[in-house]
Design a binder for these strands. Structure first.
Lengths: 189, 189
DNA sequence: ACCCAACTGGGACAAACTGCCACACCCACC
DNA sequence: GGTGGGTGTGGCAGTTTGTCCCAGTTGGGT
């Protein structure tokens, strides 16, 4: 596919930058916004837009509310939503509002591009490819939860329904910690 | 609301009967089908249809493939999908195909009626805020994987990256858990 | 400075769980 | 009959988890 103009809206700035770079490396032009306001401003300045990747959780804003504005400006734009932990109802709502796909983090750049291109009416092709191992699933969920609680181990453990001590031990056992950011949002690919 | 004509497609016959009765008690007329073929036959015989409740997992058939036929016959019909273990991709696919909502079992009749009436584009209703307990996540993943392998424990265990013996033990220990009371729909074998 | 509350890191130990090997059945198939 | 998946169970030894407990750190308040 040729170079495409993408809009990435993600409030976590380092992650946004990293994702943008990764998408650019794969031959796309990427415009970044960190909140709804910026996103709307970017929209006004663009002449063309092939795809929009919206984080659902944008601080005070909700990525879902950006779907309509994007499609208003660029009806042919492919919009996908990204979210920390997806809920089915949110996925349904997003789709009703015109989103093409709905991803849960961690989503690698490859996942994102796939989601932009995949036929959303066909549930067999998309992402759930092979079932991740239990361990991996757990690990990702742990990271996500930890993230949702601002890295607070005690609260995360509580939310996960496991003992704090256990969470500590598990965290120590995996690599990460420092490159936890990268590990968290990007699977090896 | 006045009496509505509903179509219920669910391959588990006892469950279908039960659900149908419950829906009728709430003032609806319910037509039941247990597979895609029957459903299509029912469609041809109906003059009117307000809502369709489709189980996604219909033995060899996929409930998703019934959405279009239903809407073809009755464009105004509200279609919702029901599934044992919902995946977000499936929810997206269903919505793209015209479904109004997507529920995971166990869904009470009240849930179903709510899903038929709710405005799916409204983000206010989401936020079931699944406070994802690690155990629950694991359990769902296990069930999904097991399902994907046609209930084959050995292969599922392999796919999950755990020992068959361990999977067996977990399955046995789980029939009903404190944080889950849906075993009725779980282990219908 | 002082205290308190909230977190994190870790030690110790029993209880629970897991991986692994073994063995007995089933059932379908050649 | 024999053979090859698959499933249920039992029995360990090794690992992980739940708990209790204590020490160090940090960020307010007062």
């Amino acid at each position: 596919m040729s170079e495409r103009q993408l809009l990435l809206v993600e409030d976590d700035e380092p992650l946004a930058k990293q994702t943008a770079r990764a998408l650019e490396l794969r031959g796309n032009r990427v415009t970044v916004a960190h909140n709804a306001e910026q996103a709307l401003a970017q929209l006004a300045g663009l002449q063309h837009l092939d795809g929009a990747i919206l984080d659902q959780n944008l601080g005070n804003d909700n990525g879902l509310d950006l779907i309509e504005p994007v499609l208003e400006h660029f009806p042919a734009c492919r919009v996908i939503l990204l979210t920390g932990y997806g809920s089915i109802t949110a996925a349904v709502a997003a789709t009703h509002r015109g989103a093409r796909n709905y991803l849960t983090k961690p989503a690698s750049p490859a996942d994102i591009l796939l989601a932009l291109d995949a036929d959303p009416t066909n549930p067999t092709l998309p992402l759930p490819a092979t079932p991740p191992s239990l361990q991996r699933l757990e690990w990702e969920h742990i990271q996500r939860t930890l993230d949702a609680h601002d890295g607070n181990i005690s609260r995360a453990a509580d939310a996960l329904g496991i003992h704090r001590r256990t969470l500590q031990r598990r965290l120590k056992k995996r690599p990460s910690a420092s490159d936890y950011q990268r590990d968290k949002h990007f699977r090896e690919d």
